[in-house]
Design a protein around this nucleic acid. Structure first.
Lengths: 198, 198, 198, 198
DNA sequence: TATGAATGAGTCTTCATTCAT
DNA sequence: AATGAATGAAGACTCATTCAT
């Protein structure tokens, strides 16, 4: 019958939000396949039945969680708004961005892993992710344009840059490959990026 | 119990290999959670029972598959052996590497997605993956050294380079973000890499 | 608790009737087990809660629907009032009766199926059905008596007759067994009935 | 995946049969919707899991039960083989048939009710039932032909006859309408049938 | 060694009914 | 009198793993 109810009472809305939060948290923490609806309901402090009045299924809960919390957790640069850039002094800016990224990843390491995992196994999550990724590219690009960067292939370059930063952060936070000097690596990445826009 | 038997008879060894192959293929194609042991056994042409005489569990099958086929599929550069590099003419080499990567991804798109997914959700897969990644870095680094590259931070630079190539390939094969010119992008990546080693 | 409320206000009475109508229609159309109370409430334009103030349970709704609409749909002959019968010209009367039946079934094929199904699985429905069936027998019998039929075993004969007509109609409307000529069959049935009363 | 297994080992075949028997019995006794798979498994002395290795679903169990036991229970006349009929002494034959029917119904009253219920609510059951009904008609018709009945519309007449017998039996066994004299009724039905074939 | 039958805990999902407002 | 949110037991079905042969 597909009778998903959109709650109208204030209490109900809160309850729906609780479910989203609980579901998203649990899935991020323990993985999609290791989280069941009963747990989600329990964590949210509701009965199992109510879950299916607000959501199609478990998957739906996660997607809504993604839409609610995803941006903040996974795409901090979307709200990056450092409008004034001193072109001649771009290094601190880069460091700032990288720090933003790293800090953010550190807070929710596990969530990041689970999300990346799902990006590669769940079409809807992939769609969400790539869309936000593109938006981030646009956001950064626009900041650059606003600061008189008049480079060709700006989109491509920003995309490459963000990819490099992402790799770097991931490297720093997760692998901890021995033999790898992360301070040097960061320096190299930044210089490479600066060169990119010359 | 842990009575995993290591087969010694030729026929038994073949049987084990069949299971690995079948399991690995199915999981790569349909995903770990969408593949069950009955299917694997059927695809391998053996009984379900025998599976648990050669393997600890489903997970084990996949890991062994990874060890057997992973290198060829996911880390082609490990066998990259173009020893003689003309430093002055490095562009074709880069293009070659990128092509190797892209071609490889294209052949087993779905497998790549599944593997990346598991890297981010399964510790053992992650361990395998990062180890091979590091080996690839070493391999490329050694080639460079053999060609008299005497750069500092070679490890870090190679790692950055490989990350860029990986991103590029992924971009080319999967997203197909509109507004993104992949030929230009490839060009930029190559130039950036070349600069990296100057 | 059993705090079933009998509504007295006009608006409340209408509401109850709406629920009966909605419930009865949905159950007749989709089956008892494929209809849930939420749907009924929605179709009736009321809240789910109110349903349980007017009715014991889902079953109760259906029974009340049966009492309200059953006669008209399932027992049209109860109001059959063709008092004057020309005994010598009884064939058209028979044809008329059969047509009444067939027409009636055709209008609510699905409802008939569902009802017959429940007669055979729900005691209360069975009770209702057999009672009305008997009443119909009496009704027809009385018409015959009023027309000076003074046969022995009139009750039994009428019952047999109605059974034959019912079978015939069901045959005509549902099975469509190939090899079965329904015009001939109708003719045979009528003649048989006429013989019955000779 | 729809991996329904057809058991090959003797023990497994017996187990499948046990499930069919248990499922069919329980459903016949308590109704389709009042019987769950756990009960069926328990009654059959097997685990719930095994049920789904041999059957698509609960419905499937019932259909197989129908195919296995249906004929004997619901269509005893299919094996009615009283080849030699003394046309002049047909009454005892009729009585015999009716007795066969009544006896049969009495043994499995509840099963009959459930089955009729499902004929009117489940397409597959309906299909089975009407097919067997037609076969019964053919069977009786062929007996008549073998005994030199050369009537027109034999199919129709036999169908009408069987319908009458069915009604009669049902009447005798279930309703027990007061005011109804079943001996007389039987007599009337038999005479009517005899007339039918004159 | 090998088979495939068997297990049963675990999961999602539904829904009649009750409750807080 | 009415709403619609909430409950939670119950049901169908899956599947990794074990067992009897």
């Amino acid at each position: 019958m597909n009778n998903i109810r959109e709650p109208k009472q204030k209490r109900a809305i809160e309850k729906k939000e609780k479910i989203i939060k609980a579901g998203f948290n649990l899935i991020c923490k323990n993985g999609y396949y290791n989280t069941n609806t009963a747990e989600i309901a329990k964590e949210a402090g509701v009965s199992t039945g109510i879950v299916y009045q607000y959501f199609e299924d478990k998957h739906d809960i996660f997607i809504e969680g993604l839409n609610t919390y995803g941006e903040e957790i996974f795409f901090p640069l979307l709200n990056y708004n450092n409008q004034m850039i001193d072109i001649k002094n771009i290094k601190p800016l880069m460091k700032n961005m990288i720090n933003t990224y790293v800090k953010n990843h550190k807070v929710s390491k596990i969530a990041h892993e689970e999300i990346i995992s799902m990006v590669h196994s769940d079409e809807e999550v992939a769609k969400y992710y790539y869309k936000r990724e593109l938006e981030t590219t646009e956001q950064i690009k626009n900041i650059l344009i606003a600061n008189n960067f008049k480079d060709n292939n700006l989109t491509e370059k920003v995309h490459i840059m963000l990819g490099m930063i992402d790799n770097l952060c991931h490297e720093i936070i997760y692998h901890k490959h021995k033999n790898m000097n992360y301070e040097e690596m960061t320096e190299i990445v930044i210089n490479t990026i600066i060169n990119l826009f010359k």
